[in-house]
């Protein structure tokens, strides 16, 4: 029997169906696709993206944007390594030789602090979140470049950088069929579990949905909206710094453009996963689906030896298709509201 509700349910969970389809398609396209090594690569590539998308999902659900996370990620990675390596050529560090655990705490708190400052500018300064985070994107990137004068900071061959490699590179254990699971993948999995619990089962998450759905109502019912917005940006900054830690362990040497243009992929992941740009709608599970789909497509096309330029074209098209499906979802919802109200 046809029912709008059933159709809506299908569309809401379409991401997983598409993921399976895309997966099967690539299996037939490349013999290397279903190898442990490739699966492990897909998951590792999804790890850093996933952490940023998780942060962005909180921000989007509260009805805001955070464009600055790619720069925060870069700066956090840079500062983390800079604090532990010697000064001068080849490494270009600060020569501070900080304890690596301490440097990670520094870099994570810096991420949270950047987020908090952005939140304060938006709430106390009464400025639009899009503009504030756009400015932050430029300012932080500029700081990074000015700070290093364009030289790459490298943790190569430095025993202190092991903590970074542990999160970025180390394999935790081997799973049959999935290959070696890296620490980064485990960490991202954990992040998603915690974020899911916060969003679905904690007052904080419930309030974010309310703020994104009807800010005015949330305020009238005594929710401290501005405080929540500051906290959301703090969370986003913290997760961006965590992503920076992961990436620092993977790329060994931090260029001052680390993470540049990453934000487009982050938004794409969230939107493909069904997180609404209008706020108030989306789930962590959906966002995770979006992340996995993007990295699967990326790896698959690479294996098919599609040119980098075409990969961009295809990624752009995937975003358009996702938005098209989303627009149909909104239309269907309206139809189903009319259908149910006429039944009464």
């Amino acid at each position: 029997m046809f029912s709008y509700n059933r159709l809506l349910f299908l569309i809401d969970h379409l991401i997983w169906g598409i993921l399976v389809l895309v997966f099967v398609f690539f299996i037939f396209q490349s013999e290397y696709f279903l190898t442990e090594r490739n699966i492990s690569n897909i998951l590792t590539a999804a790890a850093v993206l996933g952490v940023l998308v998780a942060g962005q999902t909180f921000v989007l659900i509260s009805g805001n944007f955070d464009l600055s996370t790619e720069s925060t990620l870069g700066l956090a990675a840079l500062v983390g390594i800079w604090l532990i390596v010697p000064a001068g050529p080849t490494t270009f560090g600060g020569g501070i030789f900080m304890n690596p655990y301490l440097s990670i705490i520094c870099s994570l708190s810096m991420g949270a602090l950047i987020g908090y400052i952005i939140g304060c500018l938006i709430t106390y300064g009464n400025m639009h979140n899009f503009i504030v985070t756009l400015a932050a994107l430029l300012v932080i990137r500029g700081l990074m470049m000015a700070f290093t004068e364009g030289a790459p900071v490298s943790g190569f061959n430095n025993p202190s950088a092991d903590v970074f490699y542990w999160l970025g590179h180390e394999k935790a254990f081997k799973l049959p069929g999935l290959g070696k699971i890296s620490v980064a993948v485990l960490a991202t999995g954990l992040v998603y579990i915690v974020c899911h619990l916060i969003l679905k089962h904690h007052k904080f998450g419930r309030e974010l949905y309310a703020i994104g759905g009807n800010r005015d109502a949330a305020e009238a019912l005594g929710i401290n909206v501005n405080r929540r917005i500051r906290q959301v940006y703090m969370l986003s900054g913290l997760l961006a710094a965590l992503g920076g830690w992961m990436l620092a362990g993977r790329v060994v040497s931090i260029q001052s453009n680390l993470g540049e243009t990453f934000i487009f992929t982050v938004f794409a992941g969230a939107v493909i996963g069904g997180v609404s740009l209008q706020g108030g709608r989306g789930t962590m599970l959906g966002a995770l689906g979006g992340v996995l789909l993007l990295s699967t497509i990326d790896r698959g096309l690479n294996l098919m030896q599609v040119s980098v330029f075409w990969i961009k074209v295809i990624q752009g098209s995937v975003i358009l298709v996702a938005m098209l499906i989303d627009a149909q979802r909104v239309r269907l919802k309206e139809l189903s509201i009319i259908a149910t109200s006429e039944k009464k």
Binding site: N214, A217, L221, G280
Partner: peptide
């Protein structure tokens, strides 16, 4: 002052 994206019960208990 209702949030359209939330369920009836979530709206009743909001805050």
């Amino acid at each position: 002052k209702l949030c359209n994206n939330l369920t009836a019960s979530a709206n009743v208990f909001l805050g």
